[in-house]
Simulated scan of single mutants.
Amino acid sequence: MTKLIIIIILAVTGLVFGPVLAGNKGYVLIALGTHTIEMTAVVFGFLVLLGILSIWLTEWLLKRTINATRSARELISGRRRRQSRKFTRSGLLALMSGEWANAEKLMTKGAKGSALPVINYLGAAEAAQAQQQVDRRDHYLQLAHKKQGDNPLAVSLTQARLQIQQGQKEQALATLSTIQKEHPDNPHAVMLLKDLYLQLEDWANLLDLITPLKQSKRLTADELASLELTAHQGYFSQLSSHQGAKGLATHWEGLSRKLKQEPALVTSYVKQMLALGEDEAMQPLVIKTLRKQIVPELLAMVTELKGDAESLLLEAKHWLKGQSENPLLLSVLGQLSLRAGRIEDAKTYLEKSLRISPSAEAHAALAEVFAQNQQPQEAFKQYRQSLALATPATKAI
């Protein structure tokens, strides 16, 4: 605009002073080496004005051409973006509908022209895995890594999750280990590690993960308690196999007082120790726990204790308070009475237990009672009933 005003001023000046200059034409000499150009001042002025107009016109045409090109490029780019958004929306809907092949096709199409192609490639990876096309999934994940921009964590987390779902435990562990080094407090990574450790039955590492899981606030208090209990129970089993009673006892002593009072955990610990022949060491813990609460699984283990039958029987009778109709307790009392040589008491307890709820153990113990009373037919009958309860029924083919 400024240039145009200057040109108009020059043109007006020429029109005003042109006639004056016409009477006094002046003289302009331009020398270029051995060549010279001569002209009047008026002609020189018009040439200068013409040159300025030519430059302005050229600049104007160039700007119009550039603007037209930019507009065309933006139009094409805008059309591509609109198509990309359309493909992406349709692909996400197909992904949510379980139309895996269509979702993969649409998400890859939508990646072209997308402002955030990483989303498309991650969606395509999900769809490919759902079709068991692991190679294609990995290809899309590689493309997502290249397009991840400022958020590489999202791609790595998705990769780890897909690897876990596919059962690629070692690969998932490597991916999550890398994430943990760079983002140790990421709650989603912690939850994925929890799922992976459960699959691997890596109870030691799962126990170490309990505190980060609490901090993540992704699980309820009940879920955390259940998970910790499961981890300890699994760890007991591993310790029993690899470190024996000493390893089990050491781990047990290191537990908090609260955990040591957890009935299910006590039961699991006692079970493993009894399997290792540590019944004498377990008897005080079993009795202490059952005095506070009748835990069925733990109560059933009382008959496995090899302590004095009379002492155990006397202790078990105290548990009858409020539990006089408990068939399991009555069965245990019957079996302990049998061990102590109190045959009639055993018969009374066992028959009452069976009237309330039949069990293989009570029938077997009662069979022994009849055998000692020289009643073979009754003993045989009880053995058969015990066997029938102990053996799952099978259908004839």
Results as ranks from 00 to 15, higher is better:
378 E>Q: 15
197 Y>W: 12
244 G>L: 05
261 Q>P: 09
331 S>T: 15
186 N>H: 11
74 E>R: 15
274 L>A: 00
249 A>F: 02
271 K>D: 14
84 S>Q: 13
58 T>Q: 01
112 K>E: 14
210 I>K: 05
243 Q>D: 12
375 Q>K: 10
336 L>C: 06
236 F>I: 11
217 K>R: 15
243 Q>R: 07
194 K>M: 15
308 D>L: 00
25 K>C: 00
303 T>L: 05
250 T>L: 05
17 F>E: 13
38 E>T: 08
221 A>Q: 10
261 Q>N: 13
222 D>W: 01
18 G>P: 13
185 D>C: 00
99 E>D: 15
89 R>F: 07
277 G>E: 03
57 L>W: 02
6 I>Q: 12
72 A>H: 14
267 T>E: 14
171 Q>V: 14
123 G>E: 10
136 R>C: 01
301 M>Q: 14
328 L>N: 09
165 Q>T: 10
180 Q>C: 02
170 E>F: 03
388 A>Q: 15
173 L>S: 07
275 A>R: 02
118 V>W: 02
85 R>N: 14
33 G>P: 14
165 Q>H: 04
318 H>N: 15
276 L>V: 02
246 K>L: 04
181 K>N: 11
161 R>N: 13
178 T>H: 02
142 Q>S: 06
328 L>Q: 15
84 S>I: 12
268 S>Q: 06
176 L>H: 01
180 Q>H: 03
164 I>Q: 05
324 S>K: 11
57 L>M: 06
29 L>T: 13
268 S>P: 11
167 G>P: 13
93 L>Y: 08
67 N>Q: 10
128 A>Y: 06
57 L>E: 05
334 G>H: 01
241 S>V: 10
250 T>C: 00
71 S>I: 12
174 A>F: 01
154 A>N: 06
396 A>S: 09
292 K>H: 10
176 L>R: 03
